[in-house]
Simulated scan of single mutants.
Amino acid sequence: MSSTFVDEAVHLQKKVLERSGYSDKTYLPESIRRLPEKIMTFEEQRKGTEKVIFGAIDDLLAKTKVKAREIGIVIVNIGLYNPTPSLSSMIVNHYKLGVDVLTYNISGMGCSAGLISIDLANRLLQTQVSAYAMVVSTESTDSGYYLGKDKSKLVSNCLFRMGAAAIPL
């Protein structure tokens, strides 16, 4: 990545990362790790997002023993990335959920969207009592990754990572 940034930018990011407490095991999207050889594309971002979302859902289903067919509501929230088809459609298709599954996508609201998603699920479950609601909170940093020289913007590259969490209600 050093060939993408000027030396000063690399030094600053390295310094922030070393002091941040993040380990070497935090997830950085493949498209960013391979800069400048591979340009960040929509498809690359989708692959990375699928990886973290499906991983979180697979873990959830395994730990809770909830069957995918028992999920009647899917709510996904994300800050920056808002593809078409939607992330909830991606989940419904991947897990072969029924055509009657209620799906919601909340984007552009930052971290507060997680709480809003939980509240929405709770309200929907008042009328859908025989189904589980699954809330997936995720973030994809590809589209917001800053490649310039402004120090204040470079810091966000160090603080935000890609990941997902899923819970059943």
Rank of each mutant, 00 (worst) to 15 (best):
S2E: 13
S2F: 13
T4A: 13
F5P: 06
V6F: 12
D7M: 01
D7Y: 07
E8M: 11
A9H: 12
A9P: 09
A9N: 10
A9Y: 05
H11M: 14
H11V: 07
K14F: 03
K14N: 12
L17F: 11
E18M: 08
R19D: 11
R19H: 09
S20L: 10
G21Y: 07
Y22G: 04
Y22M: 06
Y22L: 04
K25N: 03
T26D: 04
T26K: 12
Y27H: 08
Y27A: 01
P29D: 10
E30D: 15
R34I: 06
R34M: 15
R34L: 15
E37R: 08
E37M: 08
K38Y: 12
M40N: 09
M40G: 00
M40E: 06
T41I: 01
F42G: 12
F42H: 15
E43P: 14
E44P: 04
Q45M: 15
R46H: 09
E50A: 07
V52M: 05
V52W: 02
V52D: 00
F54N: 11
G55W: 02
G55N: 06
I57M: 07
D59N: 15
L61C: 10
K63R: 14
K63E: 15
K63G: 11
T64Q: 12
K65I: 05
R69H: 09
R69F: 09
E70Y: 04
V74Q: 01
V74Y: 04
I75S: 08
V76F: 07
N77W: 02
N77K: 06
L80R: 05
Y81Q: 00
Y81P: 02
Y81R: 00
N82E: 13
N82L: 12
P83Q: 10
P85K: 13
S86Y: 03
S86M: 01
S86H: 07
L87S: 03
L87F: 03
S89D: 09
M90N: 01
V92E: 07
K96P: 00
K96V: 05
V101P: 13
L102H: 14
T103F: 00
Y104S: 15
Y104H: 11
N105I: 11
N105Y: 07
I106K: 05
S107I: 06
S107A: 13
C111G: 15
S112C: 13
G114K: 02
G114R: 02
I116R: 08
N122Y: 11
R123N: 14
L125W: 05
L125G: 05
L125Y: 02
L125H: 12
Q128K: 11
S130H: 14
Y132S: 14
V135L: 11
V136F: 01
V136R: 03
S140A: 04
D142S: 12
S143Y: 15
S143F: 15
G144K: 03
Y146Q: 04
Y146E: 03
Y146V: 04
L147N: 04
K149H: 12
K149Y: 03
K149W: 01
S152W: 00
S152A: 13
S156A: 12
S156N: 12
S156K: 06
N157W: 13
F160I: 10
G163C: 07
G163F: 07
A164K: 05
A166T: 13
I167H: 14
P168G: 00
P168T: 11
L169C: 03
L169V: 01
L169M: 05
